[in-house]
Amino acid sequence: MDQHSLRTVAATRYVTPFREGGSLPGLVEADDLGMYVLKFRGAGQGLKALTAEIIVGELARRLGFRVPELVLVDLDPELSRAEPDEEIQDLLRASQGTNLGVDYLPGSFDFNPRVKEPGSDLAARLLWLDSLVLNVDRSWRNPNMLLWHRQIWLIDHGAALIFHHRWQPGWRPAPTYRYDAADHVMMPVAGSIAEADAALRPQVTPRLISEILSLVPDEWLDPALGSPAAARDAYAAYFAARLADAPDWVAALEETRAARV
């Protein structure tokens, strides 16, 4: 995959909804004959969730985690004509334009650390990543990981970057953010988070963040900040502030981990 762009495909057939998701993601077939889990721009948190999916998913990929390919999906509301469910019809019509597709992993199933030991290094690295991006949705109840071909794959990052739901003109990142990792699915098995920090933090450079932010379509970025460039600058400022605060939140993670031993 080109590191500087996401592929664009067109949805040709709506196959079925995944009703376990609150925003009713659906399985679609596209004009490249691929199957994708479609995240709708007209659902739930809308474009903010799709933006978080790209930023966090692509950051995770570049840090060495397995993430299904993300693509941009053009959706024609005419697909709603063949759908008998009125709720899904409305969702398809409300999502005309560019949506997000996640490569469908056939035969995958929800990851359970009781079934497969993730390893202390992977667990620590994932704890570090989720703390960096304030991902509040990786608990025992909802780990948002799949096991596919005996490997762990990360999915569903729309609940991360929660600060962008409160944006307004003049927004600045806070010097510190509270993140409660006590219920994180990886906390009981994580190794040294300080070691994970030493390995991962140097990789999250301003250039890397800029490359990832460039993958988000301009039309998805919050106009409250004035322009797409201003929105990207705000995300970049958040990452700079969060990384600067890393010694403190990594120490807090280590305290939580020690309390679980």
Score class of each variant (00 low, 15 high):
residue 2 D to A: 03
residue 3 Q to M: 08
residue 5 S to W: 09
residue 11 A to N: 05
residue 12 T to V: 12
residue 14 Y to D: 01
residue 15 V to R: 05
residue 15 V to I: 15
residue 16 T to A: 04
residue 16 T to H: 02
residue 17 P to L: 09
residue 25 P to T: 06
residue 26 G to D: 04
residue 27 L to Y: 10
residue 28 V to D: 04
residue 29 E to H: 07
residue 36 Y to M: 02
residue 37 V to Q: 08
residue 38 L to Q: 09
residue 42 G to D: 09
residue 42 G to A: 02
residue 43 A to Y: 08
residue 47 L to E: 08
residue 48 K to M: 01
residue 50 L to G: 05
residue 54 I to Q: 12
residue 54 I to G: 06
residue 57 G to S: 13
residue 60 A to R: 04
residue 61 R to Y: 05
residue 63 L to S: 01
residue 63 L to D: 06
residue 68 P to Q: 11
residue 69 E to N: 14
residue 74 D to Y: 03
residue 74 D to R: 10
residue 80 S to L: 05
residue 83 E to W: 03
residue 85 D to K: 12
residue 91 L to K: 01
residue 92 L to W: 08
residue 111 F to W: 12
residue 117 E to Q: 09
residue 118 P to A: 11
residue 120 S to P: 03
residue 121 D to Y: 02
residue 126 L to M: 08
residue 129 L to G: 07
residue 129 L to D: 08
residue 129 L to V: 13
residue 129 L to M: 12
residue 130 D to Q: 14
residue 132 L to Y: 07
residue 137 D to I: 15
residue 139 S to F: 13
residue 141 R to M: 08
residue 142 N to L: 12
residue 143 P to H: 10
residue 145 M to G: 00
residue 146 L to G: 11
residue 152 I to F: 10
residue 155 I to H: 04
residue 159 A to Y: 13
residue 160 A to V: 15
residue 161 L to S: 14
residue 163 F to G: 00
residue 163 F to C: 03
residue 165 H to I: 02
residue 166 R to L: 02
residue 169 P to G: 14
residue 170 G to M: 10
residue 174 A to D: 12
residue 174 A to H: 10
residue 176 T to R: 11
residue 177 Y to P: 00
residue 178 R to A: 09
residue 180 D to Q: 10
residue 180 D to A: 01
residue 188 P to E: 05
residue 189 V to W: 15
residue 194 A to T: 02
residue 195 E to L: 09
residue 196 A to E: 00
residue 196 A to Y: 01
residue 198 A to H: 14
residue 198 A to N: 06
residue 198 A to E: 11
residue 199 A to G: 03
residue 204 V to L: 13
residue 204 V to K: 15
residue 209 I to W: 13
residue 209 I to A: 14
residue 210 S to A: 12
residue 210 S to G: 07
residue 213 L to I: 11
residue 215 L to A: 15
residue 219 E to N: 07
residue 220 W to Q: 08
residue 222 D to F: 08
residue 226 G to T: 14
residue 226 G to M: 11
residue 227 S to A: 10
residue 231 A to T: 15
residue 233 D to C: 04
residue 245 D to T: 08
residue 246 A to L: 11
residue 247 P to L: 13
residue 247 P to K: 06
residue 248 D to T: 03
residue 250 V to F: 02
residue 252 A to Q: 14
residue 254 E to P: 11
residue 256 T to C: 06
residue 258 A to W: 05
residue 261 V to Q: 12
